[in-house]
Write a protein that binds this DNA or RNA. Structure first.
Length: 433
RNA sequence: GUGGUAGUAGCUCAGUUGGUUAGAGCAUCAGAUUGUGGUUCUGAGGGUCGCGGGUUCGAAUCCCGUCUUCCACCCCA
């Protein structure tokens, strides 16, 4: 009986694995460049962990199970609660600021579609315990640093940045009640995702004051921080938030990634827990869903039973990223080798087959990648095999080994070959490591 | 959860108004090639036509159901 792969999952054959590793290796390298340390947790947690800050709808999109001890568990749909739990457990012992990253495998029981599967990987970086705008800047910088390292430019991607703190202050200034804010965030977040008329209607349903709604609509169109003060009167909170944003853009400019960054009031993020800077990165063409998103959240650790410590972080999924990298021609099929050997040993004299195994083992123990053929057919066939294996050098064991203990070492790129005494070759391996 | 789309070899796809033994390219394996590789030529293997039911003398083809894919909606941590 043939059992199919589960809906919304992927199989990583060596070819796909090479692509996956290309992405993950890039993520990890960028994280380390900015001084983040890697962590990971279990792939399942108590179901309750994901009910703390989410409603029932989100819990429905969870893969959950009951174990034999009756524990209600869920496969992790995100790593942030695990991060909060882990940090809380050792919060007094960890040196600040805590700069951690992770590349967890996550599962969500959603309907699969373009750029979204039921099982995926997500790069997360977080800085915990640092209030300075420098931390906000580092998170954004690190994400841009990675994308730039793949070959994407400021023509391809843009980081849209805003501030919940600023938005909240402006909305309060317009007479929006405090409890209305959390209702309004998810609506404002849809601004660039739905037709203008539909957005207009949704907004006016919640904001009955026509003048206030008009002002909100104008605010959402703004793309420079300075334009805000021309549009509305600023109170102290708004001025403080504005100055923070200006700081942030100043730092990003000084870090050399200003061209990737743009102020965009319409970036709100649907989630309630963001309290400060929020950002999303998109392809400039705008066909795809966000490549990554994040922001500052002040209450996360506290929500999970810890102290009130501020944090800032972001997540980047592998699905949209891979689509983008393919669209931009950065990832192509057959550009990534699934196998690469330093040496392949070809056997020209069938009696030397055992010698090939011995020599291969010596080369491997010296730290090099090496294979020998299982079947010693024609030499031509073995060289063909070596070509397929992406080999740098092929060692031919033949008559000269029988007569003079010499190896033929063939450079597979140039086709040139030379004879080397077997003992010299082995000692050169040892001196190389 | 809702709507649409498609499903034929490992992959990409042909397959006539329903009609004999379902084909091609690529890939794989073997041979040409018993001391020299990526090319070329020859051959071979590989199919429950997604699965189940129905209509029919006869179904890859028509109908129903189901699973899966892709796309959009809901949602997006």
């Amino acid at each position: 009986m043939k059992i199919p792969a589960v809906k919304g999952t992927r199989d990583f054959y060596p070819k796909e694995m090479a692509v996956h590793n290309f992405i993950v290796d890039g993520w990890k390298a960028a994280s380390r460049r900015s001084g983040f340390e890697e962590f990971d947790g279990p792939i399942f947690e108590y179901l309750q962990m994901y009910q703390v800050k989410s409603g029932d709808e989100i819990v429905e999109q969870l893969f959950h199970l009951t174990d034999r001890g009756g524990r209600e568990l869920a496969i992790r749909p995100e790593i942030t609660p695990t991060l909060a739990r882990m940090v809380n457990q050792q919060v007094n012992a960890l040196p600040r600021p805590i700069k951690w990253f992770s590349v967890p495998r996550l599962c969500r029981a959603e309907r699969p579609q373009k750029g979204r599967l039921r099982e995926f990987f997500q790069w997360n970086i977080d800085i915990i315990g640092e209030e300075s705008t420098l931390a906000d800047a580092e998170v954004i910088f690190c994400a841009i640093d990675y994308l730039r390292s793949t070959g994407l430019t400021d023509k391809d991607i843009v980081s849209k940045i805003s501030s919940r703190k600023l938005l909240a202050a402006l909305l309060r200034n317009l007479g929006i009640a405090e409890d209305k804010l959390t209702v309004l965030y998810p609506i404002l977040d849809k601004k660039s995702k739905i037709p203008a008329e539909a957005f207009d209607e949704m907004l006016r349903k919640e904001v009955t004051d026509t003048a206030a709604a008009d002002t909100i609509l104008k605010l959402m169109e703004l793309h420079t921080v300075d334009a805000i003060s021309g549009l509305v009167d600023l109170n102290d909170d708004a001025r403080a938030a504005l100055s923070e944003l200006q700081d942030l853009f100043g730092i990003l400019g000084a870090m050399g990634v200003g061209a990737y960054c743009r102020f965009d009031m319409s970036i709100v993020r649907g989630l309630a827990y963001y309290t400060g800077m929020v950002f999303e990165m998109h392809d400039t063409v705008g066909n795809l869903r966000a490549v990554c998103g994040g922001g500052r959240y002040d209450n996360l650790l506290r929500d999970f039973g810890g102290p009130a410590i501020t944090a800032v972080g972001m997540g980047m999924g592998d699905c949209v990223l891979e689509i983008l990298l393919r669209e931009k021609g950065i990832l192509k099929d057959d550009t990534l080798a699934t196998k690469k050997l330093d040496y392949f040993i070809a056997v020209a004299e069938p009696t030397l087959a055992d010698k090939a195994v011995e020599l291969a083992a010596i080369i491997r123990l010296a730290g090099f990648c090496c294979e020998f053929p299982y079947k010693t057919g024609g030499l031509g066939k073995q060289l063909k095999q070596a070509s397929g294996y992406n080999v740098s050098r092929t060692i031919i064991l033949g008559q000269e080994f029988v007569n003079e203990n010499k190896l033929v070492v063939k450079n597979m790129a140039t086709g040139q070959q030379e004879q080397i005494a077997a003992d010299d070759f082995v000692s050169s391996l040892k001196s190389a490591c």
